[in-house]
């Protein structure tokens, strides 16, 4: 995803998403007994749309300024209330031209970071003209980054196969 208004677009990779009640003291309760489908649950309880909130977290991996991609942290954080957009396949392809972002991913301390690495590469590979070649190149980059952790590397590589 990206955020910004053209002057400085911050690029980030979603690594976590959760849906919960807007009131932290109240846990959602199970609904839909006797309903035929999940849609029916929401149709019968229209208030749910307002009481539940989905949040997601993203890891900043670079930014675009004046059309040039940088693969390190931006000079300032994203503004509050800035709009967030999903990146287009072309933008993903452009961004994944360099695999420098992998070092940020592999060294981040987020939970299940390795799942993120493989998911992100799988997604990026869909935007590539030669998916296989991209994954091999990315795999080689990973094996240099994780050379001393062959177990971890193997786990990621196995997840790269689609």
């Amino acid at each position: 995803m990206k955020t910004g208004e053209g002057e400085l677009d911050i690029l980030a990779i979603v690594h976590n998403a959760s849906t919960r009640s807007i009131d932290p003291t109240r846990r959602p309760i199970a609904r839909g007994e006797g309903e035929l489908s999940e849609e029916d649950v929401f149709a019968r309880n229209p208030q749910l749309e307002k009481l539940l909130r989905t949040e997601f977290q993203a890891l900043v991996v670079g930014y675009v300024r004046d059309g040039a991609h940088r693969f390190y942290l931006p000079p300032r954080p994203a503004r509050l209330h800035a709009f967030v957009y999903l990146c287009e396949p072309e933008e993903i392809q452009e961004f994944s031209r360099s695999l420098d972002f992998l070092s940020i991913l592999t060294t981040s301390r987020i939970a299940s970071g390795d799942e993120l690495v493989s998911a992100c590469l799988r997604l990026a590979s869909e935007a590539q003209p030669d998916k296989e070649a991209f994954l091999v190149t990315a795999g080689k980059e990973l094996s240099l980054l994780l050379g001393r952790e062959p177990q971890r590397l193997n786990a990621i590589l196995r997840r790269l196969r689609t």
């Binding site: 094996s143 240099l144 590589l157 196995r158």
Partner: peptide, 16 residues
């Protein structure tokens, strides 16, 4: 590494 998988074999050769 599991080099019976051609993908993994390709990745590790020349790097790891």
């Amino acid at each position: 590494p599991d080099v019976s998988d051609p993908f993994i074999a390709k990745v590790v050769s020349g790097t790891s």
